[in-house]
């Protein structure tokens, strides 16, 4: 996987320069306002200069986003044999039938990528609800992140791996969790909950080695949930963006910056896990 880091850094620097440009315009407008309130005529010079700067800078972020997508992101993915369509998303039918995603009223999907045996896209799901006085509808986000689908050759029985949560049955044996499978790895148990209809098949998939690999993968990629059914492997990532332009000046650590701007690297790691470890 080769990335043109110097080109990314060059763009990043230019982006930061533009950020300081915004800051300068802001100071100019503030100073103009100050002179206006003091009754000084300097504001007649400062205001136009400030507004002119604002006019030139307004289109910059979008231009940079597009520049980055077209000139950095797309070639980077093409080099890896991955198709990238910024405006396209998943078909709604897939999202509707994916058990990992909650119910929703509104659906948005963009930044679609398609590789050899996988596809992924950013997804935002929101639902409508009455506000506190029950008079009008409000909208709230129920899921925002990435959905990854890996197409496998191996057929598996349904298995859900999700974030560990509190279970009443652990402290009160009156209750039972019919489909929950407690695994014999303490660290894994602290991190995940596993649900499967067939306890033996679940353990055939989640051997001790696979559980160790999953712990490692969770730490590296922070995937949210995994669901295996038949030949399909669904994985969700909460609050992940496949390409995150804003991190260009908020993240100074180079490694983390690259991971942020190319959230897709996390996707590759999961696909690699499912292909190499799970499908060898």
């Amino acid at each position: 996987m080769s990335v043109n880091y110097s080109e990314i850094n060059r763009i990043r620097k230019r982006y930061i320069e533009k950020f300081f440009g915004y800051l300068l315009v802001f100071i100019l407008l503030e100073t103009g306002l100050f002179f206006l309130l003091r009754g000084s005529e300097y504001f007649l010079i400062i205001f136009p200069v400030g507004f002119l700067g604002l006019f030139f800078l307004t289109s910059v972020p979008d231009a940079y986003k597009n520049f980055l997508k077209e000139n950095i992101y797309k070639p980077f993915l093409e080099e890896l044999g991955i198709e990238y369509k910024p405006e396209r998303g998943f078909d709604e039918e897939i999202v509707k039938n994916c058990v990992l995603l909650p119910g929703y009223d509104d659906y948005e999907s963009k930044n679609y990528i398609k590789g050899g045996n996988f596809e992924a896209a950013e997804i935002k799901l929101s639902e409508e609800y009455y506000d506190s006085d029950e008079k009008r509808y409000e909208s709230r986000t129920v899921f925002e992140g990435v959905l990854l689908i890996v197409y496998s050759k191996k057929t598996l029985t349904p298995l859900l791996i999700t974030k560990n949560s509190f279970h009443l049955s652990d402290i009160l044996p009156i209750f039972t969790d019919k489909y929950r499978q407690k695994m014999d790895d303490l660290e894994f148990e602290k991190m995940f909950d596993v649900y499967a209809a067939d306890p033996i098949e679940a353990r055939k998939i989640l051997t001790h080695n696979v559980m160790r690999e999953l712990i490692k993968l969770k730490k590296e990629t922070d995937f949210y949930e995994m669901f295996f059914e038949g030949t399909l492997r669904f994985v969700t990532f909460k609050d992940l963006k496949l390409v995150d332009i804003s991190s260009m000046f908020t993240e100074m650590n180079e490694e983390r910056f690259l991971l942020n701007i190319f959230g897709v690297i996390k996707i590759f790691k999961v696909v690699e896990f499912l292909n190499e470890k799970a499908e060898a």
């Binding site: 191996k154 055939k204 998939i205 051997t207 001790h208 080695n209 690999e213 470890k277 499908e279 060898a280």
Partner: peptide, 13 residues
Amino acid sequence: ERKNIDVGKLFRN
């Protein structure tokens, strides 16, 4: 059994 499990085999087609 805890140490030498070939993970790949379990998923083999």
